[in-house]
Design a protein around this nucleic acid. Sequence first.
DNA 1: GTCTATAATGAGATAGAC
DNA 2: GTCTATCTCATTATAGAC
Lengths: 203, 203
Amino acid sequence: MGLSSGATQILIAAEKLFAKRGYDGVSMQQIASDAGISKANIYHHFKSKDELYLAVLKYALQDMNVLLAELQGIDGTSTEQLAHFSVEHQKHINANSSISRLILREMLDGSSSRGQDLAEQVFAEYFSLLRALLCKCQERGEIRHDIDPDHMAAALAGMNVFLFQSWSALQHFPGHAFKNQQESGKIMFELLFNGFTTHGDKK
Amino acid sequence: MGLSSGATQILIAAEKLFAKRGYDGVSMQQIASDAGISKANIYHHFKSKDELYLAVLKYALQDMNVLLAELQGIDGTSTEQLAHFSVEHQKHINANSSISRLILREMLDGSSSRGQDLAEQVFAEYFSLLRALLCKCQERGEIRHDIDPDHMAAALAGMNVFLFQSWSALQHFPGHAFKNQQESGKIMFELLFNGFTTHGDKK
DNA sequence: GTCTATAATGAGATAGAC
DNA sequence: GTCTATCTCATTATAGAC
């Protein structure tokens, strides 16, 4: 997007740091050190910390759009697409954990209005894609239609997001049920698909 | 807990600010202003910003324990208890939104180790309580038993947490499906209970 | 483009009067 | 206990040489 190679070097270092410690928890000096350049050099590429932060968001969001395109090209029946979407969604969140964390951070901030609009925009794109998929499943009679697709999408997305952001906490639990995140995601999808009730019981 | 009235005044102001903007996003001056006292006065009650932050966490977590006790005293069949738990859990998250945000923030921070242990501890208590409830439901044959209660708990908790932290973003969506958070929570609980499949369809 | 040096401001924390 | 005044240091940002 017309960014010099020196600029992307900065963006990559900044993305990781912002994701880990948040906007205020990172200094320009730290970013410069991690990028292997001087602090003043950053200001040659970005005129302020705020501008750098927004650039990081936009930069990280480019990959997001690539994935959204991929998710739309999934084959199979609508229900198969849905299961596939869930798995791919979760894989993508983890593969791009920095930007995922950034978005979740923005949603926790109360009217910081730095990148909140940007974050909510990506969030909305994800959501509407999932919603469209669920609508198709409903039209084909593959899933129940007495509940609006918005709440279905929220339930599915919520489970995946929760799994991502709570994963390290879940690891400390006794019982070791949460060993592989992708496997856990599949289990929970099946759970949501068939429900808690005993008619989903395999025995 | 042996805290002077002046101290709680500070804690209340600090809790709100930390929840909104995070640890690094809040200055001692802001806290002092919001509490209506001088900055130096804070240092009379807490010897550092870190200590204040930890005190805020512990202070806010007291209410949490009260609720956990309440949740354990729910009447009715196990399944009714479960539905009740879900509703009360969500109500509580919202009623204590500051501490909820603080905990979610800690989970997003990568090895900040400030209050992460504390946050994960509360998280674990919630989780094990929900898990125990699900075990009871399984033993009584009220819900399927081919899936471990840990994943069931994660699915249920995840939906509620997601609803809480994404609520403002969900409001901006077209369609206005998300009007009342408690109502949405009930819909999603029913969804998880009966599943996506058409056997849950009312028509 | 990249650096060193430095300004200008704000942060956490302390001293000491009342 | 609460304040004003101050210290010290880190931060964002700029100036200007190379």
